[in-house]
């Protein structure tokens, strides 16, 4: 500010004003750019949250078709949390940053679905191949993975919610059906094959079986 005031003495006010305007324009353009880019790891985290927490009530196609400015996205996310979307403050911030950057008024008409986003942002290494030999689930890890991904529908302690109770559910004894449902989804349940690794699914199964 002090710099600008000193320069104003040397330059005509008109030129100074012009320089200031151009400067603001450049900074705003840079911020616009920043707003529309998002770190791949953050994007991955956000689309996983959308898959796990928003799809409890509605499919994610509803989100991908919106083209909203930041203030309306914020109101929308707050409304959803008020209605019970299971998001911590931190998670909501991640999600908001992503939808604001991806689904803004200037974005193209057609953008990839959340499922496609999940497939293209798969974590390094990707889901482990099924042919690695038998997977041994670790129950202690499963509890945390369940809380992050499954609890929004299946309830705390897997006691049921919008989705069925899984504690002592007979599907746990039918591993084929369990894996089919988790990997490919069933009815309102989305597919988790591109979100969870096979090891993580085995961990969830181990934890559920211990309940």
């Amino acid at each position: 500010m002090g710099e600008a005031r000193r320069e104003r003495g040397r330059w005509s006010p008109l030129v100074a004003g012009l320089v200031l305007l151009l400067g603001i324009a450049a900074v705003t353009a840079a911020q616009e750019d920043d707003k529309h880019t998002i770190e791949p790891a953050q994007a991955r985290r956000a689309v996983t949250l959308i898959h796990a927490r928003c799809a409890v009530c509605h499919t994610t196609d509803l989100i991908v078709q919106q083209r909203l400015p930041p203030d309306r996205w914020q109101v929308t996310v707050e409304k959803m949390m008020h209605w019970g979307a299971d998001l911590s403050k931190d998670e909501a911030a991640t999600l908001l940053q992503f939808v604001t950057a991806r689904y803004h008024p200037g974005a193209p008409d057609h953008l990839p679905s959340i499922e496609e986003e999940l497939a293209t942002t798969a974590p390094a290494g990707g889901p482990s191949p099924a042919s690695d030999g038998p997977l041994v689930g670790v129950s202690a890890r499963g509890a945390e993975i369940f809380a992050r991904n499954c609890q929004a529908c299946h309830g705390e302690g897997a006691m049921g919610g919008a989705g069925p109770k899984l504690a002592r559910n007979k599907i746990l004894k039918n591993e084929g059906a369990f894996w089919e449902t988790v990997l490919h989804g069933r009815g309102p349940m989305p597919a988790w094959g591109s979100v969870l690794s096979h090891q993580e699914i085995a961990d969830i199964h181990a934890w559920l079986a211990s309940r």
């Binding site: 409890v56 009530c57 209605w83 019970g84 919610g161 919008a162 309102p188």
Partner: peptide, 8 residues
């Protein structure tokens, strides 16, 4: 009915 009881 909504999926969650918290939804109006």
């Amino acid at each position: 009915r909504p999926a969650l009881p918290t939804v109006p």
